[in-house]
Design a protein around this nucleic acid. Structure first.
Length: 557
RNA sequence: GCGCCCGUAGCUCAGGUGGAUAGAGCGUCGGACUUCGAAUCCGCAGGCCGCAGGUUCGAAUCCUGCCGGGCGUACCA
């Protein structure tokens, strides 16, 4: 069943068919429904007549009146439609239409707001992809939460989704990592050597060195760095990567696929990709290096793929990686990157196009950085520098739910100040608890209803019963429940999850106010049933939305 | 210097592809528990939407230029 909004929208579209000249413009002039701030302007309003009139060079009010005159409301959805001001059309929905929403929410537990799985192409969401050179920090956590939730949202809209993590387990940094462990190893064994600059000096490297000694002994003390580097590199990256997986698990993030950069090199995919691009005319040599002609697709300058010293660049591997995605049959890829990589977007999209994929085959979501604060003071966050707070520490202290909710309550586009002291100290005052409390409260009401022996069948509420819901707040809530699928859809359209937390806050706020002024369980048996339906529907939507966010919906707290 | 993102209430932030009187949370101040959960609710105060132009029936939203922040500008990853 379609939402009230969708039904109204298609009713307008049908009506507009009768406006001369609309058919030619149908694709360009979208029908947009607003919920007016002022309830005197109806339940929904559209400025559609303005847009259409402008294209047709007609009077907006004239167009509006034609649309209104031709509305075919065979379902009886409307109470009335009015033309207002210079050409707005305001729609007043027949109140009983809102009651139908409850039936829809309650008819399929866990399904409301979700679309049936579709056969369309798989969408891949690639996220986190942190180098295995240190534990995940809080910035990775934000990317993890956003990627995970975008994947959930896509699934809710019926997409098949694959979650992938790209492991940068190749290149200089791996050698640096191995050397870092080697030096810490020697230090732990009492050797008086200096730890070199520009290496990974975090405390976790000392711990790894101690564990290495425990497992592998001291025999590497006398072997040269050259001889043992591979051993240290393998050990460090493997152990760190295990830690990353564990941290993600604790944070409630799972992946379908872990893709190794090293594998690309081992299978000679980097060189083959460069040759592939060369055949297509996008590769040339200059100053001893091999260049990719990314300016052909709007990048500001061409990019090196093989350096003069013969080593390929990280970008070359990324080209090979994306080519591999296409070879796997993916036609829709969402890359989630830290905003500090924004300068990288143009060249990557150039590469995508050079490989013959459409520019829209890869969408890049830039997640702004997290400024970690402690009592208002910035905390240094460099992996090599050492002193930083890990995602794990934050999750252990603030909690998975609150951390995720905080990450998701802002546009991905917007930098985030995450103050540890504030997050910890106010943990009971966090917006997430406001929402969770409503859920727990609703569960509690259900429990009391059961104890009192209220007979109530969620699937069998009659129309007459539901129509007992006539309080203003009840209509507001039902109407908002009806908007939920639209909110999920908007998140997917914009690749912005933050609409969900804001929606939840709005819904829960209405509920708390309603709950305060009205008794759900009363002597009036039929009204009680009706209100239990409403309560259950609210609980259902809160639960569904929280599950999309990967936040638990507690029955007690 | 150039490029991308961003300037909205004291603070932290929302404000689909321009819509009617600008919205929350926190904080301040003042109220509401004998009841289904007060981790809640109700109310007051708080705004030249960075500045200046432009586009039009209409601009927080689009364009230009300033001012002020963040990030990026590697033959690093």
């Amino acid at each position: 069943m379609a939402t009230v909004r969708d039904r109204l929208k298609s009713m307008i579209a049908r009506s507009a068919q009768s406006v001369a000249g609309y058919r030619e413009l149908e694709a360009e002039v979208k029908i947009d429904l607003d919920i007016p701030r002022n309830s005197g302007h109806g339940d929904y309003a559209t400025n559609f007549a303005f847009a259409l009139a402008k294209r047709l060079k007609q009077n907006p009010r004239q167009v509006a009146s034609e649309i209104v005159a031709n509305l075919d409301d065979s379902d009886g959805l409307l109470e009335k439609a009015e033309i207002a001001g210079p050409g707005f059309v305001n729609f007043f929905i027949r109140p009983s239409a809102w009651h139908e929403i409850l039936r829809e929410v309650l008819s399929a537990p866990g399904k409301y707001g979700r679309l049936e799985a579709q056969e369309g192409p798989m969408v891949q969401v690639e996220f986190v992809s942190a180098n295995p050179t240190g534990p995940l920090h809080i910035g990775h956590g934000r990317g993890a939460a956003i990627g995970d939730v975008l994947a959930n949202l896509l699934e809710a809209r019926g997409c098949r989704v694959q979650r992938e993590y790209y492991i940068n387990d190749a290149g200089n940094q791996m050698d640096t990592l191995g050397r870092s462990l080697y030096y810490r190893y020697l230090q732990e064994l009492g050797e008086n050597i200096e730890f070199p600059d520009n290496h990974y000096r975090g405390e976790y490297m000392r711990e790894l060195a101690r564990e290495f000694i425990g497992e592998r002994g001291e025999s590497f003390r006398n072997s040269s760095l050259e001889d043992s580097l591979a051993v240290f590199t393998e050990y460090a990256s493997r152990r760190i990567f295990e830690g990353i997986k564990e941290d993600l698990d604790v944070f409630g993030v799972r992946f379908d696929n872990w893709f190794s950069e090293r594998e690309l090199h081992d299978r000679d995919m980097v060189r083959k990709t460069i040759e592939y691009l060369r055949e297509r005319g996008f590769i040339y040599e200059k100053e001893g290096a091999v260049w990719f002609l990314s300016t052909a697709f709007g990048d500001e300058k061409d990019r090196v793929v093989v350096r003069a010293n013969g080593a390929s660049t990280y970008f070359a591997a990324d080209l090979a990686y994306h080519r591999n995605k296409f070879e796997r049959g993916l036609s829709s890829v969402i890359d989630i990157w830290g905003a500090d990589h924004h300068g990288y977007v143009d060249r990557m999209l150039a590469g995508v196009q050079a490989m013959g994929a459409g520019r829209e085959a890869v969408r890049v979501v830039l997640v702004q950085l997290v400024n970690l604060l402690r009592g208002g003071q910035p905390v240094a966050m460099s992996t090599r520098g050492g002193e930083f707070v890990t995602l794990r520490e934050v999750v252990d202290e603030v909690g998975k739910d609150a951390t995720r909710f905080l990450f998701l309550t802002r546009r991905t586009d917007s930098p985030l100040d995450f103050d540890l002291e504030v997050a910890k100290a106010r943990s009971n005052d966090n917006p997430v608890f406001y929402v969770q409390y409503a859920h727990a409260r609703l569960c509690s009401v259900m429990e009391v209803a059961r104890e009192r022996g209220v007979e109530f069948d969620r699937d069998r509420a009659t129309e007459e019963t539901l129509h007992l819901l006539q309080v203003r707040e009840e209509f507001e809530i039902m109407k908002l429940l009806g908007e939920y699928p639209e909110v999920v859809g908007e998140c997917v359209r914009s690749l912005e999850p933050h609409y969900i937390p804001y929606y939840l806050h709005q819904l829960v706020s209405l509920f708390h106010g309603y709950y305060h002024d009205n008794r759900i369980l009363s002597e009036d048996v039929e009204l009680t049933k009706a209100r239990l339906c409403l309560a259950l529907a609210i609980k259902e939507v809160i639960g569904n939305a929280l599950s999309l966010l990967g936040v638990t919906a507690p029955e007690k707290m």
